[in-house]
Design a protein around this nucleic acid. Structure first.
Lengths: 318, 318
DNA sequence: TGTCGGACTTGGAACGATCAAGAGGTGGCG
DNA sequence: CGCCACCTCTTGATCGTTCCAAGTCCGACA
């Protein structure tokens, strides 16, 4: 099932160093270094001459040397999970991408690593002790977040993606999508469009995140003076659950719109509507959560803004 | 839509160095270095003493210093794409994960970077010149692969994930999933189970990959002495296309099984079967490609073995 | 007893960058 | 004219590791 073609390795010429540039420009090493890091310190004509030499030689500072001296790797560690069955996590995908993008703009790169799935701490230690990364972005916080305390103890800078629900006293930096605000704004949007019977399909009550998102829907409805009883359903996060829940809700409460705690559930709703010959958006509006496929097809969608996370990551490191 | 909590940075104690270990063990720096890299050179008792000191202090070699000296970063660069609309690429997800995993076992880490989507070369250059990575894994070869030639010119080690269809003379190392063999084996599997009218839903004729996969189905059918005319359909890679194609095929050729060039198409087939009240697997078998959701639900699925890619990546670097 | 070889250890010099402090020139001001 | 401040640039040291060549120790052998 796999096709392969191999070739031998080849040697390459050494890249130019600071000293090479210095010689070509007729200045000292330090001057070149300043030209790169503190251009203000140089006289205009000298700066120009050095920059020309840099361009001529195609010089770029050697990462390892700079890291050694400055004690900073300009790398951000990100531990990724074992891929779960069939769960192509679009949210994580997008998050990783925008993290990489923003990090790059701030002069950082993202280093991936894995660890024993049963040990939420494994992997972090080695990278930290070998000063391979400057900071971490912790995303695997689905079950508590022992990493936070552990990293805090070691004075390792990090940002968590995900609120410390189980420990409100946590002092570490974190960023999270404000589910309540998101669902509230989505519900408002539907209200503005004239919908009055807006149903909620969310996760079971023991899900903090689910209840948080639900509260947004609930608040918007209450503030609009609309009833919510009979319009909410709490189920497992599967497409089938979403389909079943929406069938029941349609039969018993006849809503004209659905707000769902996830795109998975929304997918189930779409399925139901499809089976009943109802047109999505026209007959019944559907809103998912996470801005993946569904949310993009069906307006209004929720945008899970995550940009700030990277900004914070950068700030922390600074 | 975003909740944030920030904290200030804190200073941390410096990690132990080689010299610290040497002092504690009562030996010189070089001896410690040997204990780590060439244990054979040391007398047994000395080695033990050094190892004890290493353990006591929790010493781990400083990455930057080692990189500087050995001219190797032990990092593998991987350029990731802008996330396409709603396309949670499960294949890429899994690939990245197993790449990270295997790299780790070989003492490497994966560095993510992005680049201008319109310029397939951007991003590579900087990392190369700053000696930030030892090698690349090139995956964005959907439209030709100018990276290969470019990297070759610069003597940069790399492995491509994806065959050089457009340039059979390419000499670089590459790995690819053998689509023909995969589809052939899947088709055989269905034949063994008694199916005789096995349909093909694939991509349009100008897709080299699509035609490659199709040839596998075709070969298996021909070798089984079964007809293929009227059983093949070539469409766009969308769920809707898969649904429509399967409807037409069911009406006109009444197949008992489908082999699809992608899971997206297979998804469409499932949709059709669902609408017609046919049970997947029992009434009609469906096989997707890429081992994502569908393939896992519906047996037999295709497993896209990609393990070898990482092995090759490691070999190249060595 | 002297010396030779092998096993093991040692100090010094890289790697390529930045930091700290000093040197040379220019100008202002008393 | 002399002093000092200022701007600009250079020199030497340093980050933590590995490479290199030389050093020490010990028993063996003549």
């Amino acid at each position: 099932m796999v096709a392969v073609s191999r070739t031998g390795a080849r040697t390459s010429a050494l890249p130019p160093t600071l000293a090479d540039v210095a010689e070509r420009a007729g200045v000292s090493r330090q001057t070149v270094s300043n030209a790169v890091n503190n251009p203000d310190l140089l006289r205009a004509d000298t700066l120009l001459r050095v920059q020309q030499a840099i361009a001529d030689l195609g010089y770029l500072p050697n990462r390892a040397a700079r890291n050694l001296r400055t004690r900073a790797s300009h790398l951000i560690g990100l531990r990724i999970q074992a891929v779960q069955e069939g769960t192509a996590d679009a949210t994580m995908d997008r998050f990783v991408h925008s993290l990489v993008e923003t990090s790059r703009e701030a002069g950082y790169h993202v280093l991936l690593f894995t660890g024993d799935p049963t040990d939420p701490l494994s992997g972090y230690d080695d990278l930290l002790r070998s000063t391979a990364v400057d900071a971490f972005v912790v995303t695997d916080t689905y079950l508590g977040n022992p990493q936070a305390e552990w990293l805090d103890d070691r004075r390792a800078p990090f940002v968590a993606f995900g609120r410390p629900w189980e420990n409100p006293d946590a002092t570490h930096a974190w960023v999270d999508v404000d589910g309540a605000a998101g669902c509230e704004s989505a519900t408002r949007h539907l209200l503005d469009k004239g919908h009055e019977r807006i149903a909620w399909i969310g996760w079971r009550k023991d899900s903090r995140i689910g209840e948080d998102r639900r509260s947004g829907w609930h608040r918007a409805m209450r503030e609009a003076g609309l009833p919510t009883s009979g319009l909410a359903s709490r189920v497992e996060d599967t497409v089938a659950s979403g389909r079943e829940a929406s069938e029941v809700l349609l039969d018993e409460a006849a809503p004209t719109a659905f707000v769902c705690a996830s795109d998975t559930l929304a997918m189930g709703v779409l399925h139901t509507l499809d089976l009943r010959g109802l047109r999505v958006g026209d007959d019944v509006a559907v809103v998912g959560f996470d801005d993946s496929q569904v949310a993009q097809v069906v307006r209004p969608g929720l945008s899970s803004v995550r940009q700030p996370l990277e900004d914070v990551a950068v700030e922390i490191v600074t």
